[in-house]
Design a binder for these strands. Structure first.
Length: 499
RNA sequence: GGCGCAUUCGUCUAGCGGUCCAGGACGCCGCCCUCUCAAGGCGGAGAUCACGGGUUCAAAUCCCGUAUGCGCUACCA
C-alpha cells in the first residue's frame, strides 16, 4: 500500500475561512488516522490577488486550531518549496512536456478576441462558451516566430472532444463528464504563472499526494485534472469532494451573513476545541450519537466514507452550545492558563483607577482557581469569563435599578447589618462558614435563606445574578465583603432616601 | 443557457429493503431541582423521509423522471 499523503492547499486571501478550516481538518484527521503526512501548500499563483501577510495569518490560524502540518512553507519537507510562486520553472517544464506530446499548445489570442468570441457564441445561443482552438492550427514556424517576437501568449490544454471522462470520488462514488463540455483550459498564463489546474496537478503528483480532499466547488474542474494526469501518464490520486458549508439561507457560507474567518471566532472567545469539534460534525459523523469530541477522538473515529454528500448550514447556536460544553469539561488549570494568556495579550480593558483589588492577574492562582470553578457552569465564553472575573474584582460596583427594585426591601439594611457583623467576627472563613453563618441568621429572623441571599448578592456584586453566593463571598474575601455591604447600605439608602 | 452535485424535524444528522406511522443533538415549550443565572433531570411540540412514477410480498432506503437548491462555466482559486 502506498503511503498516505494529503494536503491542504489554500490560496492566501487574507484569513482562514471556516470552510477552509473544515477542509484542512478532514485532511489532517485522515492523515493522522492513517499514519500519513499532512502537508500545507500555498497556492499563490494569482499575482493580482496577492495580500500582504495573508500566508502568515493563515498559518497562525491553522496552528491555533491545532492543525500542525508535517511539511509546509515554514516546516520544511523534501518536496519543497511549498509556495507555488517559488516553483515557476517546474510548471514551465511540465507545460513544455505537454506541448511536446501534443496535449497542450501555445495560444496568442488577445483578451479582446476571446471576449468577442464569447459574445458571438452567446448570441448564437450555443450551449456553452468554449475556446475555438484557433491557435491549434498555427504551424510550428508561425508559433516559433510569434514566440521570438515576444507576443503575449498562454499555454492551453488540448482537449479531445467526445470522450467520456470517468473518475471515482470517495464521497460521491462515480462521476462522469463528456470531454466536449471541457474547455481548452489555460495552463500557463501570459505572466508566466500557472493556473490552479496545472500547478495543482503537477504539485500533487510531485509531492506524491495520495488523496485529494477538497471542497465540492472543485468537482466540476476535476475532469480537467484527470485529463492532465492522463496526459502526463501519471497515476491519479483518489478524490474526495467535501460538501459545502452554507449560510442559514442555504447559499454558500459568506462574509455578508456572519463571521467566516476562524480568527473572528477565536477573538470572540470560542475555544479551538469547540470550533474544531463543531466544524468536524458539519458533514461527518461516526454513525453513533456522540457529539462531544476532542481531537484525539476525532482522529480515532474519522473516515472519509462517513462524510455526507450535501451541504450543511453553519448553525451558530449549536456552536455556542458546544463551546459551553467544552468549557465546562475543561480542566481548571488549563482555563487558568488560557485566561491569563487572553488577558495578557488582548486589549482587554483593565480599569486603571479600579477601586478594588486591581487586575485579577494580581490574585494568587489558588484564588483564581476558585473563581474558575465558581464560574464554569454559567459562563460559556472565554471573553465572558474574563469580563465577569474582572467585574467582581476591579470594577466599581454599580447597582442596577432593576436589581435594586427586585431585591432591596425596607428591612434589608437591618438584615445586612446583622450579616455584616456576623461575617466580620469570622476568622478566615471558608465557603461553608459563610453558609452556616447566613443560615443561622435566617433562622434567627425566621425567614428563608433566599430572603437574605438575594439582597446580599445585590449588595456585594450589584447584580441579581452571578456565581454561587458562598463561592462569591469566599472569593471576595471577608474584608471586601464587609466593605461592600457597608457601601451598599450607604449608597442605596442615600440614593433612594426613603429607607 | 450548458454541465455537474445534492434533497430525512427550523438546523446538524441516524437510517444503507422489513426492527421506522422515522431515532439522537441544537434550538423552542413545560415541569422538577435550586440562593440567582446557568448546569442537571424529566416530559412535550416539531419530518405526509422534495414531488411523481416504477421494481418488490415489502421502499426514507433500489431505478427513472420532474421540481427545487447549490457549485462550476475566467489568463480566480
Amino acid at each position: 500500500m502506498t503511503d498516505i499523503r494529503v494536503r491542504f492547499a489554500p490560496s492566501p486571501t487574507g484569513y482562514l475561512h471556516v470552510g477552509g478550516l473544515r477542509t484542512a481538518l478532514y485532511n489532517y484527521l485522515f492523515a493522522k488516522k492513517n499514519n500519513g503526512k499532512f502537508i500545507l501548500r500555498i497556492e499563490d499563483t494569482d499575482r493580482n490577488r496577492y495580500v500582504e501577510g495573508a500566508v502568515e495569518n493563515l498559518i497562525k490560524a491553522l496552528k491555533w486550531a491545532g492543525l500542525e502540518y508535517d511539511e509546509g512553507p515554514d516546516a520544511g519537507g523534501d518536496f519543497g518549496p511549498y509556495m507555488q510562486s517559488q516553483r515557476l520553472e517546474i510548471y514551465k517544464k511540465h507545460a513544455d512536456e505537454l506541448i511536446a506530446k501534443g496535449h497542450a499548445y501555445y495560444c496568442f489570442c488577445t483578451p479582446e478576441r476571446l471576449q468577442s468570441l464569447r459574445e458571438e457564441q452567446e448570441k448564437q445561443k450555443l450551449p456553452q462558451a468554449k475556446y475555438d482552438k484557433h491557435c491549434l492550427s498555427l504551424s510550428k514556424s508561425e508559433v516559433e516566430k510569434k514566440l521570438q517576437s515576444d507576443i503575449p501568449h498562454v499555454v492551453r490544454l488540448n482537449v479531445q472532444p467526445n470522450q467520456r471522462i470517468v473518475f471515482d470520488d470517495i464521497i460521491r462514488e462515480r462521476v462522469e463528464f463528456d470531454s466536449s463540455n471541457v474547455d481548452d483550459q489555460v495552463l500557463i498564463k501570459s505572466d508566466g504563472y500557472p493556473t490552479y489546474h496545472l500547478a495543482n496537478v503537477v504539485d500533487d503528483h510531485l509531492m506524491q499526494i495520495s488523496h485529494v480532499i477538497r471542497g465540492e466547488e472543485w468537482l466540476s474542474s476535476t475532469p480537467k485534472h484527470v485529463l492532465l494526469y492522463d496526459a502526463f501518464g501519471w497515476k491519479r490520486p483518489k478524490f474526495a469532494h467535501l460538501p459545502l458549508l452554507l449560510n442559514p439561507d442555504k447559499s454558500k457560507l459568506s462574509k455578508r451573513q456572519g463571521d467566516v474567518a476562524v480568527e473572528d471566532y477565536r477573538d470572540k472567545g470560542f475555544l479551538k476545541d469547540a470550533l474544531v469539534n463543531f466544524v468536524a460534525l458539519l458533514g461527518w459523523n461516526a454513525g453513533d450519537d456522540k457529539e462531544f469530541y476532542c481531537m484525539n477522538e476525532l482522529i480515532e473515529k474519522f473516515s472519509l466514507e462517513r462524510v455526507n454528500k450535501s451541504g450543511a448550514v453553519f448553525d451558530l447556536q449549536k456552536l455556542n452550545w458546544l463551546n459551553a460544553e467544552h468549557l465546562r469539561k475543561m480542566d481548571d488549570q488549563i482555563i487558568l492558563q488560557l485566561l491569563k494568556r487572553e488577558i495578557l495579550n488582548s486589549e482587554f480593558p483593565v480599569s486603571p483607577d479600579a477601586s478594588r483589588s486591581g487586575s485579577i492577574l494580581n490574585l494568587p492562582d489558588n484564588y483564581l482557581l476558585q473563581v474558575i470553578s465558581a464560574m464554569k457552569e454559567r459562563v460559556s465564553f472565554v471573553k465572558e469569563f474574563i469580563t465577569t472575573c474582572q467585574y467582581f474584582y476591579t470594577a466599581p460596583v454599580e447597582y442596577e435599578q432593576k436589581s435594586v427594585e427586585k431585591n432591596w426591601k425596607t428591612d434589608t439594611p437591618e438584615q445586612l447589618k446583622k450579616l455584616r457583623e456576623a461575617f466580620a467576627s469570622l476568622n478566615n472563613p471558608s465557603k461553608e462558614d459563610y453558609e452556616h453563618t447566613l443560615a443561622k441568621i435566617a433562622e434567627e429572623l425566621n425567614i428563608g435563606k433566599g430572603k437574605l441571599i438575594h439582597p446580599l448578592r445585590l449588595a456585594v456584586s450589584g447584580q441579581s445574578t452571578g456565581p454561587g453566593m458562598f463561592d462569591l463571598l469566599f472569593i471576595l474575601g471577608k474584608d471586601e465583603v464587609v466593605k461592600r455591604i457597608d457601601t451598599a447600605i450607604e449608597k442605596i439608602v442615600l440614593r433612594d432616601g426613603s429607607f
